[in-house]
Design a protein around this nucleic acid. Structure first.
Lengths: 197, 197
DNA sequence: CCTACCGATCGGTAGG
DNA sequence: CCTACCGATCGGTAGG
């Protein structure tokens, strides 16, 4: 619609964006290339001038999200904060990604199992590595007595999945504002970790 | 294999059980009736002597799970416990269902969007009603000063999704035992709610 | 419970 | 970017 497309990637970006919305709503397997084409406003065959296959779309979404989270945790890991602020920063990043980038993040979280090899293994490895980094932050906090004695993998499981529950907030009618949501979540989860509450 | 089938429902039960396992692993849409038939050990056409359609299988799974949770929350609501023990009982029920009844509960939680009307609306209404009951327990706790001032729907969103994260525990290699998992989760989540931690 | 089969739809390609 | 089309696979039925 604008006078000029900033880069020639623009139509492909539109396809990826619409695909993320549809994969989120119906699931990857239940979304057909004809559905997607109609949403984009072209014929199904024309999609293949911009993407190579249905699976390539999923790959683009999943690895784009993974890269963003990986970059972020590396920055936080390297920072000189105490453990609780580190965890808080990490959680706020997760919450904001889920709020602002809802469709993509949700798809990467729930639909990655439809990736094909070698992408599937690659993605799973990145996930595992991410959780390990997160766990080692928590374990540092436990050692330093900043965090109560809990099983770190269990705490991570709770926190990561709790955040992904923002999908229900997104679809809720009478929802509180974003800042309130974030602060409530942080308060509940951080107090669940802290040593003397 | 046993000398007698206790009831004639037995083969249908096998189909439902195998279907739950496959829907969990691959998703509803990506599981074909031929895949399912092979797992059960019969031809695809023979499935239809026991079930009416693919969607009927999903309905059976989803509403079976919903009924169990609804029955439980009604019992807890009617009990005379204080709020924190009520919430703890509720959470322990969720955790145990997720541990012991993994496949079915997971499918009801993640694949219900593939239900068809009128089952889809029915299921969504039951979900909403369940969350409302849970929220009113929390709100009672906030009023009585047993629980800190938080947004109840947000707290519920956190807790319900945290529990559903037990899927990763299930698939984990080096996993802690069930009792430890349950106690860790309860400790983190209940302390996140409690007034002075 | 099986063989044989239906119409519909799928992801994707040829060729322009 | 479209028309025309491919082979494969889908959920499900007929008939025994």
């Amino acid at each position: 619609m604008a006078k000029a497309q900033r880069r020639k990637a623009s139509k492909k970006d539109l396809i990826l964006q619409k695909a993320a919305a549809m994969f989120r709503e119906k699931g990857f397997a239940a979304t057909s290339m004809r559905d997607l084409a109609e949403t984009v406003g072209i014929e199904a065959a024309s999609l293949y001038n911009h993407i190579r296959s249905k699976n390539e779309i999923l790959e683009a979404i999943c690895f784009d999200v993974a890269n963003r989270f990986n970059t972020n945790i590396d920055i936080i890991e390297a920072s000189k904060q105490a453990v609780i602020p580190k965890v808080e920063t990490l959680l706020r990043f997760h919450i904001r990604q889920m709020v602002e980038n809802y469709e993509e993040v949700y798809v990467a979280d729930r639909e990655w199992k439809h990736l094909e090899e070698p992408y599937l293994s690659n993605f799973q490895n990145q996930r595992r590595a991410y959780r390990k980094k997160f766990a080692s932050i928590l374990e540092e906090g436990i050692q330093k007595n900043e965090i109560k004695k809990i099983d770190a993998p269990t705490a991570i499981l709770i926190m990561l999945h709790a955040v992904s529950g923002i999908e229900s907030w997104h679809r809720s009618k009478a929802r509180i504002n974003e800042r309130e949501l974030e602060d409530n979540m942080i308060m509940i989860m951080i107090d669940g970790l802290r040593k003397q509450g």
